[in-house]
Simulated scan of single mutants.
Amino acid sequence: MNGSHIRLHIRRLAFAAVAALAAVGVTAGPAAAHAEVTASDPRALAENVTLSFTSEAESDSAGIAELRVVLPKGIAPDAVTLKDAPEEWKLTATPDGYAIGGPALATGTDAEYSITVRQLPDEKALAFKTLETYSDGKVSRWIEVPTSGEKVDNPAPLLELKAAAPGARLIVPSPTPSPDPSIVPSAQASAAATRSAPVGAASAQEAGSSTGTVVAVVAAVLLLVAAGAFWWRRRNGSGA
Rank of each mutant, 00 (worst) to 15 (best):
L224Q: 12
A197Q: 10
A189M: 00
E132A: 12
S140M: 15
S190R: 15
P30L: 01
V26K: 09
S186Y: 02
V218M: 02
A46K: 07
P103R: 14
A189D: 06
K129V: 03
V139I: 04
R195W: 07
T211C: 02
Y113A: 00
R169W: 09
T133D: 10
I115Y: 00
V145N: 11
F53M: 02
V117R: 03
P166V: 10
A22V: 15
K138F: 13
L223T: 14
T94R: 05
V49M: 07
S182Q: 14
A57I: 11
A127S: 15
P181Q: 05
T194Y: 11
K83I: 02
M1A: 10
T116P: 05
E206V: 12
R141K: 01
K83S: 13
A189F: 00
G237P: 11
G97W: 05
L45I: 04
D84M: 00
L91F: 03
T130Y: 01
I6P: 07
E132S: 08
V80W: 00
N154V: 08
L224H: 12
S196W: 11
G108N: 09
I64R: 04
E58M: 04
P157N: 08
P185M: 12
A44I: 02
E88C: 00
A163S: 14
P42S: 13
P173D: 13
T92L: 03
E150Y: 05
A85E: 05
G237S: 13
W231P: 03
A14S: 13
A44H: 09
L126R: 12
H34N: 13
L223K: 08
R169A: 13
A165G: 02
G137Y: 12
A226H: 02
G108P: 08
V221N: 04
S148D: 15
T147D: 12
W142Q: 03
V37N: 07
T38D: 09
A168C: 05
P175C: 01
A23P: 09
S174G: 04
T81V: 14
S210W: 09
W232D: 13
G102C: 10
V184M: 13
A240M: 12
V139T: 04
L126C: 00
W231Y: 08
L8D: 15
L131T: 03
G212H: 08
D96S: 07
D180F: 06
T27W: 10
G102I: 05
P72H: 12
P77L: 04
I115W: 03
V49K: 14
R43Y: 10
S196L: 08
P77I: 00
T176W: 05
P181I: 06
G167Q: 02
V26W: 03
E66M: 08
D153Q: 11
V221E: 01
T116N: 06
N48D: 14
D180M: 00
A99R: 00
A16Y: 10
K138I: 12
E123H: 15
D60M: 12
G239L: 14
E144R: 11
D78Q: 02
A16S: 12
P179S: 11
G237R: 13
S135Y: 11
K83A: 08
P103G: 06
V69I: 01
A216E: 09
E36L: 08
N236D: 10
P95T: 00
T109D: 15
I183K: 03
A22F: 10
L67Y: 07
A44D: 03
R68M: 06
I64C: 05
A22D: 09
P157R: 11
D78S: 06
G137R: 03
T176K: 08
I115A: 06
P72G: 06
F53N: 05
